[in-house]
Amino acid sequence: MLARLNSDHKHITILLNVLKVKYRKLAEGEAVNFNLIRDVVEYMQSYAEHSHHPLEDIIYNYYLEKVSQEDSPNKLAEEHHQLIDASASLMSTLNLILSDVVVSREQLVVDLKEYVALQERHMQYEDNTIFPLLAQEMDEQDWGKVQELCSLKLIDDPLFSDNDNVLFEELRDYIKDDEIF
């Protein structure tokens, strides 16, 4: 399960790098494909926020119960809620742009940079703090129980799996063409 979460982080990093390229181009006054940017945010909403983060929450809550700290503040869950809000706000702005509503280019650059930074800080926290705790404290039996608890949230990654899902086809093609993959 931890390997899957680490793999998801690698995939999310690829997409955050796409957003970095796009906000840099925007900052330089170049044209960008807003549909592609929206696809990245939509992926974050549909996969990261509905499968990846809930898996992390289930696993971390199990860990907190195991070490008898279920009453402690849950920074991980708080960050997941912040990410949901940030994605929703960014998606709203992108939908305005795609509906031909004028939005400040400078503000969009700032919003994209802040979104990427928030995502990166969050993954750094998990990679450097949460995941090592889980690896250290949980044994095979724990991971078996967690697997059962997570079964309802386990879905195939709609972008980075080998299925025939066409939902993010343009984004998949972009990543392959730019050899980011």
Rank of each mutant, 00 (worst) to 15 (best):
M1C: 03
M1H: 06
L2I: 15
R4K: 15
N6I: 05
I12R: 04
L15K: 08
L15S: 07
L15C: 07
N17E: 14
V18E: 00
V18A: 02
L19E: 03
V21L: 12
K22P: 00
R24N: 15
L26H: 07
E28G: 11
E28K: 15
E30G: 00
N33M: 00
R38D: 08
R38C: 05
R38K: 13
E42A: 08
E42W: 05
Y43L: 07
M44F: 14
S46L: 15
E49W: 05
H50L: 14
H52C: 07
H53D: 11
L55E: 15
L55V: 09
E56K: 07
D57F: 09
D57C: 06
I58S: 04
Y60C: 02
Y62G: 01
Y62D: 05
L64A: 07
L64D: 01
L64R: 12
L64I: 03
K66W: 04
S68L: 11
E70Y: 08
E70H: 12
K75L: 15
A77T: 11
E79C: 07
E79L: 08
E79I: 08
H80C: 05
H81F: 10
I84F: 09
D85K: 13
A86W: 05
A88E: 14
M91Y: 05
L94T: 02
L94Y: 00
L96C: 09
V103W: 02
S104V: 03
Q107H: 04
E114P: 00
E114V: 10
L118H: 02
N128A: 12
N128C: 09
T129K: 03
P132F: 10
L133R: 09
E137N: 14
E137M: 09
D139W: 00
E140L: 10
E140Q: 11
Q141K: 15
D142L: 12
G144R: 10
K145I: 08
V146Y: 07
Q147E: 15
E148C: 01
L149K: 13
C150S: 15
S151Y: 06
I155F: 13
D156S: 14
P158L: 12
L159F: 06
F160N: 03
D162N: 12
D162S: 15
N163V: 01
N163G: 12
D164S: 14
V166D: 10
V166H: 14
V166I: 09
V166F: 11
L167S: 04
L167P: 00
L167E: 12
F168C: 03
F168V: 03
F168I: 01
D173Q: 11
Y174S: 03
I175E: 04
